[in-house]
Write a protein that binds this DNA or RNA. Structure first.
Lengths: 192, 192
DNA sequence: TCGAAAAACTAACGGTATTAGTTTATAATA
DNA sequence: TATTATAAACTAATACCGTTAGTTTTTCGA
C-alpha cells in the first residue's frame, strides 16, 4: 500500500513500452497496472480514461518521431532534406510499428491535443517546402500529398497488402523519388 | 425458437449495415444479434469468431468498392481512367467511411482471404498502367505509390489531421494529378 | 501536530466475446 | 409416412474488459 511514486508521464511511458512489446490490440489497463505494481483502479488517480491515455501515447509517439527525424539533418539541398525526412519517417514506423499505430487509432472525438502535436510535426515540413519554391497553397497541398503517401504506404505494408514479390524498400524509394522529382519539375532546378 | 433462415452472408451484410450506421467502434455482436432477432450465441452457428466476421466485412467492402469503381468507366485515355479510379476510390471511402475502416483494421493474422480480395482490386489497376507504358516492375511500384497516397489521404483526413484552412478535395486533386503527371513525364505522351 | 489532499485499496457494475450443453426444428432416410 | 440425424436455435456460465463508488492509508503543508 506504500505509494509507488506514480504519475501520468510514467504511466504513459510504461503503456508505450507495453504496447511496443505486446502489440496495440493486446494492450489492457490490467496488464499495465500489473507491470506498475498497482491495482487497475489506481490508474484513475492519474488518467481519466483509456482513450485519453491512448491520445497521450500518440502524442509521445509524435514527440519521439519528431526528435528522431530532425536531429542532425545536414543536407546539400532542400530536396535532399525532404528525402531524408521521408526515409526517416518510415524508419521510425518500422522500428516502432505498434507505437505508430496509436497515432491514427485515436477516436476522432476530443483528440485535439494529439492533433496539435501532429501539426507541430507537419509544420516543420513547411520551411523545407518553402525553400523548394512552393507557394503557400501548394505547400499545404504537397505536404498533404507526401504525408498521405508515407502514411498510406506504411499502413498498407504493415497490413500485408503488398505482395512479397517486389521489395517494399525499393517501392518506397520509387514513391518518394517520384514525388520529389515532380517537385523539381514544377518548381525549380537542381540547386535548392 | 422458430428458425430465422440465417446464414453467414446475411450476418455479414447486417453487420456491414450496422457498422455503417453506428460506427466501427460501437459495433458489437450483441447489437447485431438483436437486430437479427437472435441470441448472440446463435451467431456462432454461422461464424467462428468476431475477427473472422470482421475480415468478411472487409471482403464485402472490397467487393462493393470494386463494383462501384469499374462500372462504365469509358475514358479517352488510360490516364483518364486512372484519374477516375482515384476519384472514385475516395468517393467510395467518403460515402462509406465506417465500412472503409474495416479494410485495414483487420488483425494481420489469418486475413489471407481478405488480402486476396484486395489483390483482385489491385490487379485491375495493372492493365491500365500497362497501357500507360510502364514496365512490369514499375507497374508494381506505381500501383503501390498511388494506393498508398489514396489510402493515406483518406485515413489522415478522416482522423482529422488535415486542417480546415485549405479544401481537402483540392488537395486530393493536386495529389492525383501530380502522380499522373509524373507518369506522363516518365513514360509517355498525351494520347495513351 | 494536525488536518487536508492525494494515492493507494476493495468491491462492484455493466459491457464484451466466447464456450459448453440442451432443446427444437428441419431435412434426409428407411 | 415414420424415424433419425443434423443443423440451428436456446440457456447458462466463464473470463475478460473499462469504469465508478466508497474506503483506507500515506504524505505534505499549515
Amino acid at each position: 500500500m506504500a505509494r509507488k511514486g506514480l504519475n501520468t508521464d510514467r504511466i504513459v511511458e510504461a503503456a508505450a513500452e507495453l504496447i511496443a512489446e505486446k502489440g496495440f490490440d493486446q494492450f489492457s489497463l490490467r496488464e499495465l497496472s500489473d507491470r506498475l505494481g498497482v491495482k487497475t483502479a489506481s490508474l484513475y488517480n492519474h488518467i481519466s480514461s483509456l482513450s485519453e491515455l491512448t491520445s497521450n501515447i500518440g502524442q509521445l509517439a509524435f514527440e519521439r518521431m519528431a526528435r528522431q527525424l530532425y536531429n542532425g539533418t545536414e543536407c546539400k539541398s532542400s530536396f535532399d532534406t525532404l528525402y531524408h525526412i521521408a526515409i526517416g519517417y518510415r524508419k521510425f514506423a518500422k522500428e516502432n510499428p505498434e507505437l505508430y499505430k496509436t497515432i491514427v487509432k485515436i477516436p476522432s472525438t476530443g483528440g485535439s491535443d494529439l492533433i496539435e502535436k501532429g501539426q507541430n510535426l507537419v509544420h516543420s515540413l513547411y520551411p523545407v517546402l518553402e525553400a523548394c519554391g512552393l507557394s503557400e497553397r501548394d505547400i499545404i497541398h504537397f505536404s498533404r500529398t507526401i504525408r498521405s503517401a508515407m502514411h498510406g504506404f506504411i499502413t498498407l505494408e504493415e497490413a500485408g497488402f503488398f505482395g512479397t514479390m517486389v521489395d517494399a524498400d525499393e517501392s518506397y524509394s520509387y514513391m518518394v523519388e517520384t514525388l520529389i522529382r515532380s517537385l523539381k519539375n514544377e518548381y525549380g532546378g537542381e540547386d535548392r
